[in-house]
Design a protein around this nucleic acid. Structure first.
Lengths: 211, 211
DNA sequence: CACTGTATGCTTACGGCGTAAACATATACG
DNA sequence: CGTATATGTTTACGCCGTAAGCATACAGTG
């Protein structure tokens, strides 16, 4: 409990430790007690830096949003959207718990607002009307969150499902022939290029609203 | 504990009670003890019908999937996709907790597989290649889950966020001008027509892969 | 009918959770 | 030096999911 020890714990450090813990063990495994142990402190000490666990989770989400890279503003809006999308996919992929957390809690922390403001700004500056910017934002958000979720294996419980699949594959084939026909593509899937494929469709659709 | 009392409890009844509870109080409020009380039974009795709470949550998701209406197969694939999408949005909207649960857990219960098999079947029968069916499925799933999430207010914790927004609106306006400019559209938003707008873009994009 | 196995429900108990409250200490400032 | 404030600790409470063991009621068999 020396001077050094005390000043090392901050909200930022708590949030970063939480992110690291979630990356390593999954969010649902994270408890205040276990997290506290990783920063060598008792559980209740964390409450000097976060209001409660919900606040901490919000901080974790925001931390990831703040890490999404924002491209050069000189590029075309299409290229900016492409790069933002890729960076978002990259960050969400690095922290697979983020999207599901986002879907549980929503989030409008400072990092997320900065990010949203930037994306929406790109679209406004490209000349879109308010209504079309709204369309674009919703579509891009849905597309990105949806693909990020699916590329991370769909929740954290994929192990069991996979083995279950392989065991029951013959029965699956006869009961769900179309799904079975699609199965190889679902399994060996290059998510990033899949994402970009859809993104191009969305960009094309939006483009046609401009001219 | 008469004959009647005993035979009334089944897995289906437990799942339905859980769905009703989640609709009324939110999933995160549902505990095995509280749920048991709503069917006038002790918590542990539920375990005669579900393996554990995770199994119950999976059952709840699957229950909703099984309730999505499947349209007449004589319609064009475009119309079938439109109707399936609308029905999915309708069911997800009736049970706002489903999408976030789905994003946490993934799901491949029988109901979800039947549903997926049908949608994928529509696309195969329309003449799409495997790869394009894959593209289509991923895009439709992302779009539908994303919009459903956003139309439900983004997680369950929307109350606080809304008041926070109104209190800080001036500060928000100067810090995040683009977001502020979009705010009216985000607040008074006809989600169903928003959803359909995006769906048409996706359908158009897919159509161009067919011919 | 009696007998027995099985399905269903209840009781109890355990360890873990988030966090409120009271307390201790170390730093910052008069 | 003295005091207020920030930070960390200890203890405790009421929930949670669920394992284990027990009670009861029904179904199938003689």
């Amino acid at each position: 409990m020396t001077a050094d020890t005390r000043t090392t714990l901050t909200r930022e450090r708590v949030v970063e430790a939480a992110v690291a813990f979630a990356d390593g063990h999954g969010v649902e495994e994270m408890s205040m007690r276990k997290l506290a142990a990783t920063v060598e402190v008792e559980a209740m000490s964390l409450y000097n830096h976060v209001k409660d666990k919900g606040d901490l989770l919000d901080g974790m989400i925001d931390h990831v949003f703040a890490s999404i890279q924002i491209p050069d503003g000189d590029l075309s809006w299409q290229d900016q959207v492409r790069l933002i999308g890729q960076s978002a996919m990259d960050r969400f992929g690095a922290h697979p718990w983020v999207v599901s957390l986002l879907m549980q809690r929503g989030n409008f922390g400072p990092g997320a607002l900065v990010f949203m403001n930037h994306v929406v700004g790109v679209l406004f500056e490209a000349g879109f009307e308010e209504e079309d910017v709204h369309h674009a934002w919703q579509m891009l958000a849905s597309h990105t969150m949806g693909y990020s979720f699916q590329s991370s294996g769909g929740g954290g419980v994929q192990e069991k499902d996979f083995s279950k699949f392989e065991n029951e594959l013959p029965r699956l084939t006869e009961s769900f022939p179309y799904v079975a026909r699609l199965a190889p593509f679902l399994i060996e899937c290059a998510w990033d290029s899949e994402y970009m494929f859809g993104l191009e469709i969305i960009i094309d659709g939006l483009e046609s609203r401009l001219g």
